[in-house]
Design a protein around this nucleic acid. Structure first.
Length: 595
RNA sequence: GGGGGUGUAGCUCAGUUGGUUAGAGCGAUCGCCUGUCACGCGAUAGGUCGAGGGUUCGAGUCCCUUCACUCCCGCCA
């Protein structure tokens, strides 16, 4: 491509082009002014080319004064660089352009943040001047990676026989799940649309419509507070759904897609191409969480039974166990020579996390097995031997213990597992460790209200023969509901769906919804399911998090082009913003208080 | 809603126990420099120390309030 702005881009020219007259356009990345000789690094999306001009040229004094990040067009001749001035860091490093003419295409004010720098900047400045921030190498490349990953996923999905469809952005509010973003309806005063939290119902309706395999790079909107790995407002999912499938069929497709994607875009190894499957129950026991980081080799063990022994005199724990608490522990291999400060730091850290601390001791053996450490004296030789049997610990290992009610315990022991592994440097950063978490319970009891609620997706299919499910024990019902976790990051969540209306009414009634409630709230779907719905299921991997892992970033804003800040404001576009009284009036809205 | 961290020049940061006129690097402006690639050298400008209040002879520094950003908890089927 050649036009009045350029004959080549800024990473194209090579030795072979020496002698050519060329036109380049781009940003002034860097100037090096030698007084009578000036170097200009010209940058565009593709790379950097060094351009040079000396005092003899009439343009010299103008170019010498040019601001960084000005957009210019230069015309000149490709010149060979002498061997001692070749720059191997850039692709065009063997040549340079001898500038003949130049023109400013876009002038630039003094920069609020330098573009040519590896320095980190305050988030609000970066977001306000995102267009400058995005010129910087690292994030520019992250965004390009994101584009390539999405293109690749699209072509894979097409290859697998999936059809891409769009679903509505203005839809109806749903009672389950996150807080909705609402949009007032002008033509229906007092009524609101909701932005979709996910195209959940639509993708099921697509299956009922007979399309068999659907996917979409779908925007999802949830009005919840932000985290490092969670943008406020919107995020993207690879939403997919398939008809006439069992859980295994979904697993096969998604494993293949993710393995291909991660192998293509990262040099890191996968811990296993076949994702291990861990039941929700096991995950909660062994890792204390349903998003375990399998790069971390530490496993949690339950040793509650030890604390009903006569020869254990750890009275605080014994008393708690009697009143229903449980004890779980983490064994660290061969840590007997770690300094006291290592153990105390972890205990102190646990207290800062709101736990009552982490007790610990180290197993030693001279003639007999003994436990060293502040609480070691509470355990008899026989009790210690039993602990070794239960935990697989050996002489020289240390044991960290926590005692609490189950939920609280899982929380503290889970983050302790991460903390201890980090302190001991046990986590291999050069791998991706995927796993499936399966067999989620259909329902759970809400701690505060004591009511039975859907634990995940109310549209999931319960496991087992339908006429044999014991609805009197709802907490025992498992669902065909699954998550994919990678390196401790929840990447996707999916399920085989419940396509049987009567069963749906039954499950909703357990969660406290009447038939009328369901008919009203999910009218589109429940209606559709009664006109011949195929069995179907799917999943929705989070695009932003996939790219975040591939780009080796810890923050989702580093792979998002125009993110909002933590308060869900777009500092560049000034959103959200006030609207005129006329707009409000049309929408039939009056504000309670106005600033 | 709650907890932690940060806030000093356009940008990144230093600033000791409360003590003279608040510093550095980058950037900007001006001057010198023909082979740099983070070019080099010299000079100049640039500050409501986030904001408000208090303690004190004296506050960037101590106390209180408040705002902004960020991380976490709650929340996120």
């Amino acid at each position: 491509m050649s036009n009045k702005y350029r004959t080549h881009n800024c990473s194209e020219l090579r030795k072979e082009n020496v002698g050519n007259n060329v036109v380049l356009s781009g940003w002034v990345n860097k100037k090096r002014d030698h007084g009578n000789l000036l170097f200009i690094d010209l940058r565009d999306n593709y790379g950097v080319t060094q351009c040079i001009i000396d005092k003899e040229n009439l343009n010299f004094s103008q170019l010498e004064k040019i601001q960084l990040e000005t957009v210019i067009r230069i015309e000149g001749k490709v010149v060979n660089r002498s061997s001692d001035t070749i720059n191997k860091e850039i692709q065009t490093g063997e040549i340079e352009i001898g500038i003949k003419e130049f023109k400013v295409l876009g002038s630039c004010k003094e920069l609020p943040l330098p573009v040519f720098s590896d320095q980190e900047y305050a988030e609000d400045i970066r977001l306000k001047y995102r267009f400058l921030d995005l010129r910087r190498k690292k994030i520019h490349e992250n965004i390009i990676l994101r584009s390539k990953v999405i293109s690749f996923i699209r072509s894979e999905m097409n290859k697998y026989g999936f059809l891409e469809f769009q679903t509505p952005i203005l839809t109806s509010s749903s009672p389950e799940g996150a807080r909705d973003f609402l949009v007032p309806s002008r033509l229906n005063p007092g009524k609101f649309y909701a932005l979709p939290q996910a195209p959940q119902q639509f993708k099921q309706l697509i299956m009922v419509s007979g399309f068999d395999k659907y996917f979409q790079i779908a925007p999802c909107f949830r009005d919840e507070d932000a985290r490092a790995d969670r943008s406020p407002g919107e995020f993207y999912q690879l939403d997919l759904e398939m008809s006439f499938v069992e859980q295994e069929d979904v697993f096969k497709v998604v494993e293949k897609l993710l393995v291909n994607t991660f192998k293509k875009f990262s040099n890191k190894k996968l811990l296993s191409d076949k994702f291990p499957r861990i039941t929700y129950k096991d995950a909660m026991l062994k890792y204390g969480t349903d998003k375990p980081d399998l790069r971390n080799p530490l496993i949690i063990k339950d040793i509650t039974e030890i604390f009903s022994r006569e020869d254990v005199t750890f009275e605080i724990f014994k008393k708690l166990v009697k009143s229903g608490s449980i004890v779980r522990c983490i064994v660290t291999k061969n840590t007997k020579d770690k300094p006291r400060s290592f153990f105390d730091n972890i205990d102190k850290w646990a207290k800062e996390q709101g736990a009552s601390g982490l007790a610990y001791f180290t197993i030693e053996k001279e003639k007999e097995i003994s436990a060293k450490g502040p609480v070691g004296k509470f355990f008899s030789k026989e009790a210690l031997e039993e602990i070794l049997k239960l935990t697989g610990a050996e002489v020289g290992d240390s044991i960290f213990l926590a005692c609490s009610k189950q939920k609280e315990l899982e929380k503290i022991i889970s983050i302790s597992r991460d903390k201890i592994a980090k302190d001991l440097d046990l986590i291999n950063n050069e791998i991706f460790a995927f796993c499936w978490i399966i067999d989620y319970p259909m329902f759970e009891r809400n701690d505060t209200s004591n009511k039975i609620e859907f634990s995940h997706n109310p549209f999931s299919m319960p496991q087992g023969e339908i006429d044999k499910i014991n609805f009197d024990k709802p907490l025992d019902i498992l669902a065909y509901q699954y998550d994919i976790v990678c390196n401790g990051v929840e990447l996707s969540s999916g399920a085989i769906r419940n396509h049987i209306p009567e069963l749906m009414y039954k499950l909703f009634s357990i969660a406290g919804y009447s038939k009328q409630d369901v008919d009203q709230k999910f009218s589109g779907m429940i209606n559709a399911l009664s006109y011949g719905a195929p069995p179907h299921g799917g999943i929705a991997p989070g695009i932003d998090r996939i790219v975040m892992l591939l780009a080796n970033e810890k923050n989702i804003r580093e792979v998002t082009m125009f993110p909002m800040n933590q308060n869900a404001q777009d500092l560049m576009m000034n959103a959200p913003s006030d609207v005129t009284d006329k707009q409000l009036k049309e929408l039939n809205i009056s504000l309670k208080s106005k600033k």
